[in-house]
């Protein structure tokens, strides 16, 4: 059998791809735009727009959305768009700080439990179980109540109620990694417990932990809003999203929808966008998907 000379020329290539990829790409792009818009608004509006969010104008109380006040005004005549941006800023700050703290605590506890095993593991996981047996909100309220109102108690409260899931995720991941032959090889190569943990285990769980941290930001924001809505969170002069909704409770009953709708949307939309991005990222770091590229 000899080759046809024609086949040595570049043949016509057929593609076997599916279209599923493109819709996901669009979804990811929308999420990126939303998250970027949120971050930019929060970072740039306060220094660039030299308007006072606290400026009271009693002559324009509770105006519905219009050209001059796109989100309307509140019961003291303050511009709601500006209030919302500042509120988002506070909520995001609390959310990110709490998520980071929770992730650090969770990763440390989970990695220690998983890497040491034995009684250390059992003891630490009992602590985790104890913490999770109390309803989050109840414990959050309890912690906030121990301090004077302010940003820090809220961050601490949210962090202390949210590190548990990260600890569980990290511990499970470390336990499964610890049984890998490459850990055996490291032990056989003279690596100490510390070195095995720092060099081989932690770097492997960090993507998972980081993902958990990102997913926790919306959670922490919701938690902060809930505390503030209950009047236990941030002091009322700080315009957090939860505070805004709490303050507007009365006007909602009077048929003025804008003071609750816009802060509410600003909690939901950015957090969904963050969750969407985190989901796409999880698919990326999932080894199953990676093996889809053969060779």
């Amino acid at each position: 059998m000899t080759c046809d000379p024609a086949t040595t020329a570049e043949p016509a290539w057929r593609s076997h791809g599916t279209e599923r990829r493109s819709t996901r790409a669009v979804r990811v792009r929308v999420c990126v735009v939303l998250v970027a818009a949120t971050v930019l608004a929060v970072l740039l509006v306060p220094p660039l727009v030299r308007l006072d969010q606290q400026a009271v104008d009693l002559s324009s109380r509770l105006l519905p959305p219009s050209r001059s006040h796109p989100f309307g005004t509140d019961d003291l005549g303050r511009d709601l768009l500006l209030r919302c941006v500042y509120g988002l800023r506070v909520s995001l700050l609390v959310g990110v700080a709490a998520a980071l703290t929770a992730t650090v605590i969770g990763t440390a506890v989970g990695a220690t439990a998983g890497a040491l095993g034995g009684w250390a593991d059992r003891g630490l996981m009992r602590v985790v179980d104890t913490f999770s047996s109390v309803p989050h909100l109840l414990m959050g309220i309890f912690i906030v109540a121990m301090f004077r109102p302010g940003v820090w108690p809220v961050i601490v409260s949210v962090a202390l109620t949210h590190w548990l899931s990260t600890a569980r995720i990290v511990r499970a991941e470390v336990l499964s990694l610890r049984a890998r032959p490459y850990i055996d090889a490291a032990v056989s190569g003279g690596a100490s417990r510390w070195r095995v943990t720092v060099r081989h285990l932690l770097p492997a769980v960090l993507p998972q932990a980081a993902l958990a941290a990102v997913l926790m930001v919306p959670h922490a924001m919701w938690h902060e809003s809930a505390l503030s809505f209950l009047g236990l969170g941030l002091p009322t002069h700080l315009a957090s999203l939860g505070n805004l909704i709490q303050a507007a409770r009365g006007s909602l009953l009077a048929g003025q929808w804008w003071p609750t709708l816009f802060p509410g949307l600003l909690i939901i939309v950015p957090t969904l966008a963050v969750a969407g991005l985190a989901g796409a990222w999880r698919e990326r770091i999932n080894p199953r998907r990676r093996s889809e590229l053969m060779l």
């Binding site: 043949p11 016509a12 290539w13 057929r14 593609s15 076997h16 791809g17 889809e292 053969m294 060779l295």
Partner: peptide
């Protein structure tokens, strides 16, 4: 890694999306 499993996947239509076939 000589390509034999890829050949089998091609016959079953189980190639990933970044693959192109000819012939």
């Amino acid at each position: 890694g000589c390509g034999k499993s890829v050949l089998a996947s091609a016959l079953l239509g189980l190639l990933p999306a970044n693959a192109r076939t000819a012939g």
